[in-house]
Design a protein around this nucleic acid. Sequence first.
DNA 1: TTGTAAGCGTTATCAT
DNA 2: ATGATAACGCTTACAA
Lengths: 344, 344
Amino acid sequence: MKKAPTIRDVARTAGVSVSVVSRVLNDGSGPVAVETRRKVVQAIDELGFRRRAAARDLSNGQTLAVGLVLPDLTNPFFSRLADRIVWEARSRGAQVLLLTTQEDPHIEGEALNDLLDRSVGGVIATPAGGNVDRWHRLRAMGIDLVFVDRTLDGLEEVDVVSLQNEASAARATDHLLGLGHTRIAVISGPVETSTGSARIRGYSTALLAAGQVVDPVLVRDVPFRGELGGDAVAALLALPEPPTALVVANTAQVRSAVHRLFQLGVAIPDELSVVVFDDNPWSELVSPPLSVVRQPIDMLARHSVDLVLGRMQGRLPEAPQRLEVQADFVSRSSCAPPRRLAHR
Amino acid sequence: MKKAPTIRDVARTAGVSVSVVSRVLNDGSGPVAVETRRKVVQAIDELGFRRRAAARDLSNGQTLAVGLVLPDLTNPFFSRLADRIVWEARSRGAQVLLLTTQEDPHIEGEALNDLLDRSVGGVIATPAGGNVDRWHRLRAMGIDLVFVDRTLDGLEEVDVVSLQNEASAARATDHLLGLGHTRIAVISGPVETSTGSARIRGYSTALLAAGQVVDPVLVRDVPFRGELGGDAVAALLALPEPPTALVVANTAQVRSAVHRLFQLGVAIPDELSVVVFDDNPWSELVSPPLSVVRQPIDMLARHSVDLVLGRMQGRLPEAPQRLEVQADFVSRSSCAPPRRLAHR
DNA sequence: TTGTAAGCGTTATCAT
DNA sequence: ATGATAACGCTTACAA
C-alpha cells in the first residue's frame, strides 16, 4: 500500500515548483506557460495524483461539500428529494454529507454540531423545529443555509425553497367543493410548522370563499412521526356528522391514513372522497387510484442546490431568497360527488 | 463573524500547551493531570471550541466519515437502507457521504474518484457492476470497503453483507409449489449480478427438488433500471402456456411489474399467484395485499456499519467477512392454488 | 505530567 | 512565468 502521491511529487516529476502545480490545479489562479502546463498535466496523470480534500479544505477554510439535513429517508418524499439533491450537487461538483433527524430537534441539534465540525460549505435542511440558536450559529460561522420544504420563524434571513402550500391546499379543497361536498376534513402537519399552518390556511380560505364555515372538528393536525394519521381518520369517521371528503395534507401520514381507511373498509369514493398530498409511487396502484397533489420534487432539489452553491460562491444578491414552486393537482378516481344519506 | 477558536486559543486560555489540550481531546492518548483536564475542559466550552475535521483528517491521514455508494434512492429498498445506515453510523460517531450511481458504472466510477479525493475512511457500497480496478485502487489506498446487498466477481477480498438470496428465492418458490403450481415464472435482476444469479439458482433448485423441470422461457432477468419489469410480465402472460404463478425477485422492478399486472386486469390470485421480493410500504395497501419476501434492512445496515467501522479501527480479523442475513417470507393474499383451465 | 516542534497536503503571498 | 515559504488547525514523537 504505497502512499498516495502529493502535489510535491507531481512538482518533482514535472521538474517545476509546487506553486506552479497548484496553479494548474486551480485553473486561472495565476499564469502558467502552456508548455509547462502540459508537463504538469502529464505528471499528474502519470502519477495518478488526486488532491486531498482535507488539505485543500484546511488551507482555504472551506469545503465544497454540502450538508443535507432531512427528517427521515423512510418517507418517499424525502428519499426522492435526497436522490435529486445528491444528483444535482454532483453534477455541479459538490458532495453531500447526509444527516437525518427523525424529526427530533435533539438529534437535529447533534447533527448541526457535526456539520459545524466538518465545516461544510453550506447546508440544505428541512428543519425539525427549534434549534434556532444553532441555525444562527451555523450562519454566523459563514456556512450558507437553505431551508427546503419548511421554514422556521425567527430565521427570516435564510433562503427558503418550498412549494405553494397555501395555494395547493386551496386547490385540492376547491376540487372537492366543486364536486358538491359541504363537509370536507383535512389532516395536516402540526400547526406550528410552516407547512402545517399554510395548508390549513389554504383549506380555510377555499372553504370561506365558497361561503362555507370552517368546522374546527374537521381540522386535524398530527405529527410527522408515528402513525397518528390513521387515528385521525378513525376519529373523523366516528364523528356524529362525519366528513364526506378528506384532504390528507400531511405527506408523512398518508400511508398511515390510507391504510386505516382500507382497514375500516371505507368505500372510496362512494362513502368518502380523498385527495392526498404527494404523489407516491404507489398512489396509483391502490384501488381506487388516489387523486393527489403532486409535489415538484426535482424543482425543489434544483433550486436548493442552486441557492447553496450560488451563495457559497458569492454570487447571488444579499437579500434572502424565498422561492415557491408550483404543485400540480392530479385527478384520479378517489373523488366523486357526495352521496346523500351516506351512513356507516 | 468572528473566527472560530482553535486548539491554540484553548491552550492559551487554559494556561497549558496545545499537546495537553490535544490529549484531553483524544481521551487516553497520553497522561493528563485531573486538575489540568478540568481547566482544559472548562476553557473548551467557555470558548465553544470545536475541532475542525479537515485539520484532524489532514493530520492523521484519515477520516471518520464513511462513503455510502448506492444505486438510487428512488427505490424504497435503498432509501430505507440509507436511512438505517446513516442512523447506525451516527450512533457510532461517523458521518456519511452519500453518492448515487443510478446503476450506471460510469457514474459510479466518478463517484469513486470523489471518494478517493475526500479520503473517507471507509466505503459501504452496492456496486453497479464493473469498475473492478477502481474498487481495487480504493482498497490499495487503505480505504476499507464493504459491499452490501451485492458482490462483484474479482473482489473476493472485500467484506460482503447480503441476504440469503438463494434460500429466499427457494423459499418463495416452495410456497408456490406447495400450493400445487406447476408453471411458476420468475423475474429476476440481471444474471450477471450476484443477486440475480443466486435468486435464479434458488428458484431452479426448488423446482428441481420438487421434480419439475426449469423452463427457460419462464425465467426473465431484467435490468434494475427502467420499467422493463412490466414488459416481462406482459411477455410471460402472452406465452402459449402462461405461468400460473410468478416470483418477482427483482426488487427494483416490482412496482413496474405490479403496475402492469393491474393494467392488464389480471386477477390475483385467481389467474396468477404472485410473490414479490421486498416488503414495500405499499405492498399491503394494494389489493390483494402482496405476499412478500421481507428483507431485513436494519440488519444489513447494522452489519455493514459494524464492518467498515470495525476495519477502520483495525479490530476485526484479516480474512474478508461474508455475512448473509435471513429474509422472512410473509404470506398475505396474493397466492392461491392454481385454477385448472384458467384462460385469459 | 507537560511542553516543543515537526509534519500532514494545499493554497496564497511575495519575491525573483 | 516561476519559485520559496508561510499559513491552515491538529496530532504526535520526543524532550524536559
